[in-house]
């Protein structure tokens, strides 16, 4: 029920920010999505979409953090191994 899927904004329509809609591409499938709750979103942004409504703009930097962290963990581990 609380599923939200990330997709890329391809078009934005409507000047009234409260009725702002856009076409969002989910790996090839396009849907009309309400963008009223993400006024900051621009074309090319990824948004999390739940039941036809975008609920957040995906923060790319934060998205990569877990992988940076895993890499750091690896390096520490290697360092530990060499020291032993």
């Amino acid at each position: 029920m609380c599923l939200a899927v990330p997709g890329r904004i391809e078009t934005i329509e409507g000047v009234d920010p409260l009725l702002k809609m856009g076409k969002v591409n989910f790996g090839g499938i396009r849907k009309n999505v309400s963008l009223s709750y993400v006024p900051e979103a621009v074309i090319g942004d990824y948004v999390m979409v739940h039941v036809g409504v975008a609920i957040s703009v995906v923060d790319e930097e934060e998205a990569n953090r877990v992988f940076h962290y895993l890499k750091e963990m690896d390096e520490l581990q290697e360092l530990g191994d060499t020291l032993q």
């Binding site: 009223s36 993400v38 006024p39 999390m48 609920i55 957040s56 923060d59 934060e62 998205a63 953090r65």
Partner: peptide, 18 residues
């Protein structure tokens, strides 16, 4: 917050307001 790519501390303010 593990899910910072989508979650901000204050949430989605326009959505909360509505």
């Amino acid at each position: 917050n593990q899910y910072a790519r989508s979650v901000r501390k204050e949430g989605n303010v326009p959505a909360r307001t509505r």
